[in-house]
Design a protein around this nucleic acid. Structure first.
Lengths: 113, 113
DNA sequence: TGAACCCCTGACCCAACGGTTATGAGCCGT
DNA sequence: ACGGCTCATAACCGTTGGGTCAGGGGTTCA
């Protein structure tokens, strides 16, 4: 038992951390350049779908699909506001996913606070 | 300018950070459960292909292709040793990718050292 | 109610992905 | 040189993924 935790024997997984299936969803969501770009757009600002579409040379349905993938991965949150639907980053989920995956690797723990 | 760097005005991108195309490769590589599992196997130990195959109910060629995807993403490094080929984690690339992507988001910067 | 706007969903197409089997290349032992 | 072991690659197949266009549901305003 090298790095044994307190009570549980196999406790690689932190409490409150996303389960593995969800983590795979997250990486699938991040594995597309357009979706990465969308996340960058949402950093800081919340934006309507139309605003997001305006930043790409892609059709509105295509962006809508990307957004639903990001929502499924819980990386973004949407909220209806009149005619518009506003998307914003789900900050907690983003950093939780990051910590839960990369925390498994010694070389990354150095970089985690 | 909260965490402004020295000279450059727009320096979201760290020096020595992987370019975006490479980052997408990394997330694509991470977006498969088997490949995530392989990385966990390689944490700490280096292993031969045969040892890795022994941990899955998948054929040797399948694992071999997964390994080549991970290698393309520079998440692992291989090295011939006699009959065997030994794979090990590429620690630097892993943590560099993590920092370079998640560093873009305020909510994640809190967790980065 | 109806028109206009914003966005999502369905149906479809082609490319990419993950799995398989078969085969071959590279390295050892005898 | 040969046989056996390890691993990678080629060819193939079904599924998933990302794109399009067409259409429809929700909301606002007159």
């Amino acid at each position: 038992m090298s790095t044994a935790a307190s009570t549980a024997e196999v406790s690689d997984i932190q409490v409150g951390a996303p389960p593995r299936r969800q983590l795979t969803k997250v990486f699938k969501a991040l594995s597309d350049g357009t979706r990465q770009e969308i996340l960058r757009l949402l950093e800081g600002h919340q934006r309507t779908v139309g605003e997001i579409v305006g930043n790409f040379n892609l059709s509105q349905p295509t962006i809508s699909r990307h957004l639903s993938v990001l929502k499924e991965a819980e990386l973004v949150v949407d909220q209806r506001q009149g005619q518009n639907v506003i998307y914003r980053l789900n900050d907690e989920a983003l950093s939780a996913s990051m910590r839960s995956f990369f925390g498994q690797f010694r070389s990354c723990q150095h970089s985690l606070r």
